[in-house]
Design a protein around this nucleic acid. Sequence first.
RNA 1: GCCCGAGUGGCGGAACUGGUAGACGCGCAGGACUUAAAAUCCUGUUGGCUGCAAGGUCAGUAUCGGUUCGAUUCCGAUCUCGGGCACCA
Length: 888
Amino acid sequence: MKYEHLQIEKKWQDFWVSNKTFRTPEIDELDRSKPKYYVLDMLPYPSGDGLHVGHPEGYTATDIIARYKRMRGYNVLHPMGWDAFGLPAEQFALKKKVNPKVGVEECVIRFRGQLQALGFSYDWDREINTTDEEYYKWTQWMFLKLYNSYFDVEENKAKPIGELKIPEGLNEEEKAKYIDSQRLAFISESPVNWCPELGTVLANEEVPEQMEKGFTVVRRMMKQWKLRITKYAQRLLEDLDRLDWPDNIKKLQTNWIGRSDGAIVKFEIKSNDGKDRSIEVFTTRPDTLFGATYMVFAPEHKLIPEITSDEQKEAVNKYIDAAAKKSDLERAELSKDKTGVFTGAYALNPASGIEIPIFISDYVLMSYGTGAIMSVPGHDDRDMEFAVKFGLDIIPVVTPEKFKDVAFRKIKTDEGEIIISGKGLEKMLNGEAKEFHAYCDEVKEGKTCFTEEGYSINSGFLTGLTTAEAKEKMIKWLEEKNIGRRNTNYRLRDWLFSRQRFWGEPFPLIHFEDGKIKALKEEDLPVKLPQVSSYTTSKTGESPLSLIEDWLYTTDPETGAKVKRETNTMPQWAGSCWYYLRYIDPKNNNIFCDIDKEKYWMPVDLYIGGSEHAVLHLLYARFWHKVLFDLGYVTTQEPFNVLFNQGMILGEDGVKMSKSRGNVINPDDMIREFGADSMRMFEMFMGPLEATKPWSTEGIAGLHRFLSRVWRLVVDDRTGEINSKIVNDAPTEDEKKLIHSTIKKMTHDIEDGDMKFNTSIAQMMIFVNEMYKLEKVSKEVVEKFILLLSPYAPHISEELWQRLGHSESLAYHTWPEYDENYTKAEQITVAFSVNGKVRSKKNVDVDMNEKDLEQAAFDDEFIKKHIMGKEVVRIIVVKNKMVNIVVK
RNA sequence: GCCCGAGUGGCGGAACUGGUAGACGCGCAGGACUUAAAAUCCUGUUGGCUGCAAGGUCAGUAUCGGUUCGAUUCCGAUCUCGGGCACCA
């Protein structure tokens, strides 16, 4: 009987499902004395195309770990579910004029079928779907928690909004406004990427994709819901330290959060109307304040209309209009050439006292810092470029270290140390400082821009200090004069949380006629999406929900007043922010996850997914988790303890798989032809999990060949009986050595967490090759090998296990132990080399002492030949490795 | 431009803390079985030169240089490819 993968795989998949082999018991039935292991895949979006070969790569790795841990006696949680809200489903629904639910259900069935066909050991009883009403009820519930919380800066944590201290002397309306301004979920007017053809806003990361398809994207101001993730910037940054994540992912998040330390500096504005005004700017280089020769405001800055002179009004307005029309992308792309307009207003440099002009330019972003900057063209590339273009003054205020001796002199006098620089010093130096002056001239002319740290020059009380010292001194000076303070800025923006779509979680909010907004109560959840058979986009930029009047108009459950529902829906990221908690307690109707169960299972012990989620999903989920922690709903500060990123699988031609290139490999075809076990084995054999590597159909055939060899080792091809060479004898010494070193290698490969399963598979191949050479093989050894193979190729393993006479599944059988004594060879090959070049090899006893080894080398004929007639100057002996003789 | 990561046979990739480069698989070549083919099994497979042969010898882990008795591994510079960020003051 040949290795019939289709039949075997079907048999065991049915067995696992009907026996619920991989069901994780509820917490009260669990043996709590056993350790737990929570191994999780990133929540997939069930697209219409079905799985591609990249999906099973990560899933196979987690499945191997899950199966291994079960055999090691852990309570394992290994669930799967669907992130089914999202734009593709919505586009499909609009095109086919159906409810997106219809398409999603089909996709889920297909995806689930494909995953089961690969034999993954998920507990399907815990399957979740972010679009189920019973699931998104809790997403809405969490939104309410965010809405009804504020961030206490003193305690550095979120608290219920009821605990917010409200400033005294406010009337009711002001109070409400103040409270709204502190909520973690808040509404604000902000620019969005509006796509007229699609009739929706797009997330930044969706813009390039849609523009490629020929759609237009314009910037537009709209009222948007946002989440105050910026309050958590510092904690999100600090807590990266406690996570066992790849360094590059930590770095990506660190950069994304983008902490900058510096100072806020206040500049007085000399306005044309004589009113007193001032403007604050953020700078990371307060030490260069003396070199600030102009200021730039973002075009959206509110102060511009007030300060612009009559003569400049027209030009300024024109510039603002033009900037508003540009999308973020265009603003960035056209950035090579700096543009801007003078406002006609001036500010006073607080350090030098010089009047400096105020410009507007779109190279300054309204969304970072204060939306205005002080420009130090001598020491900032962008400022330099702008200054050259507009003919503005440039003052060098920092010198590279190499000029520090000619840039200034410290002289001790009776009154203490004084600094001499400038003209006075020039005379003293007698022309010695030529190069330094050339540097200064180049800076002034806009030819050189020194952006690194050095020593302050031309900077009054800072002159002669290092950049670090000058920063400190300037901040102190600013604080004393009350015109500035130390400050930290983050690049992280608040999370734009609303989308004008149908297919997302509705916000649990109602709008009264007078414009007031009210959050619904927990007991009013879920706010369900309308059960329409089809719908259309609105032309106004509102969600399609705004056209569904039956749904839109409702009554306030408390007062019965006529109200409108909020028509925005949440972004796709929302549901995946907390799904890992729902798996723990998927059917709970009272809370999203019982805290006792959370305490047992969390944090996730291993989380595997693609690096495309390095920032967004992983940052958003960490943020939500921290809010839940602050409010006491979870006991862990971080959700994902260990993270691993799988690499991409390319097409056979070495480039990314895509429909247009026609190099897409369909896993269904592979499973049909070679089997799920071959597929799993090959995906792991291609290389380390993290590597990007090309697919090879010839390669998977090789793994199928290997599994056939395993099959024939156990089963007689012709009769279907157990291979007659398998005997009940005790294992021979050679067999023991082989199986024990195989167990050792495979155990270590899984335990070390590097996810390099390719070498484990190579070891299994070596094992099988060796067994083929033997006349008789011990059944005990073969059985141990099948246990080792089972996490990788579970179907064939179960089948062979059964054929060898076991009535129970091997899924919970103990993982084989190895004996260190059998993993060591008695003899080892050592290399003898002369001057570092290997000239001979010899088998010697393990741990032969250095003296004997050295002697063996000198006795070696080839070595003799190479050292004959030469002087031996040095001998290096490394036990069990080599002897190197250095001759002259 | 900035920040990561990677360059090893025809291909995917091995090589523990510096100590025998190329495990394992694919492909290819040769052989066995077969009327034949498929399947299977066995052998060989980094390159050059040399030898009838066993072998000998030199070169070789992107390039150049350094440290070392010894470097795929450590250090410096350069090149190429992949990924991320991109006016964040």
